[in-house]
């Protein structure tokens, strides 16, 4: 059974058809890519899967459960982590707090425990802090745990986002243009981090990306989206040589 299965998903914004008959099936442990020109509807697909929007038509199944219409906090708690195209961090909170915040759905002590500091609360808080620090270690920013994110460089903020997404214990990680705004050095680092995360947790990754080299190197299979429709799907090699993809990116050759 695939981890995530999307069948015949279509979405309208008013009269505009943003996504048309979209299908996807991700197995446990796969890294998949979604490419396409700006405005093709890639982020919309992420928003549909994560419950920010409710698809107009179609089925979405995650871990064997239909998630269409579930509020996004429940979908997230099922094990779907996500990062964003434009960094969306809580600027004046510390790095550690970002990660601990994402553990919300795993914390089960009650209000009484919170106020009076019961044993279970203290125990859980300790474990969670430890887990959070390990995640920061994994993405290489443990030494910055107490810094406020607004003061940190861009590449580091990307890692904070990654750690935050990992803190909800995802089975599937959705990365929306993880390399946006990065320089080549940061890019190589990030690829390293993604590989490491993938190996450590054995999770599935679905990423939107514009940098071809990055996608081609990481992903097993890639979909190309144009005007809300998948025009090509296949291995990196197949995608690279697909005339439709080349046309979408470079334009049609003018016949003379």
């Amino acid at each position: 059974m695939p981890l995530l299965q999307v069948e015949h998903m279509t979405h309208f914004f008013g009269g505009l058809r943003a996504v048309h008959d979209y299908n996807l099936s991700i197995e446990q442990g796969q890294i998949r890519g979604l490419i396409g020109p700006n405005g093709a509807g890639k982020s919309t697909i992420f928003n549909l899967i994560t419950g920010v929007y409710r698809p107009s038509e179609g089925k979405v199944t995650f871990r064997g459960e239909s998630i269409v219409g579930l509020p996004s906090h429940e979908i997230a708690a099922l094990g779907m982590g996500r990062t964003f195209q434009n960094l969306r961090l809580w600027r004046h909170m510390s790095v550690l707090d970002h990660v601990k915040m994402s553990q919300y759905s795993q914390i089960d002590y009650g209000l009484i425990g919170a106020f009076f500091g019961t044993k279970r609360r203290n125990q859980q808080e300790k474990e969670n802090t430890e887990k959070a620090l390990q995640l920061l270690d994994l993405v290489g920013i443990r030494h910055l745990a107490d810094s406020m994110v607004t003061n940190l460089p861009y590449g580091v903020q990307r890692r904070v986002e990654m750690a935050r997404a990992l803190a909800i214990n995802p089975k599937l990680l959705l990365l929306d243009e993880p390399t946006a705004g990065m320089n080549p050095d940061e890019l190589m680092d990030l690829m390293q981090v993604i590989r490491q995360v993938h190996n450590t947790f054995g999770l599935s990754i679905f990423l939107i990306e514009h940098r071809m080299k990055f996608v081609m190197e990481l992903c097993e299979r890639i979909q190309t989206l144009v005007f809300g429709e998948v025009i090509a799907e296949g291995t990196p090699k197949e995608i690279q040589n697909n005339p439709k993809v080349i046309e979408a990116y470079l334009g049609k050759e003018v016949e003379t």
Binding site: R88, L89, W90, R91, A167, I168
Partner: peptide
């Protein structure tokens, strides 16, 4: 800070 990301972190 926002209402978009917070639910996506399970809150």
């Amino acid at each position: 800070y926002d209402f978009l990301v917070v639910p996506l972190m399970g809150i």
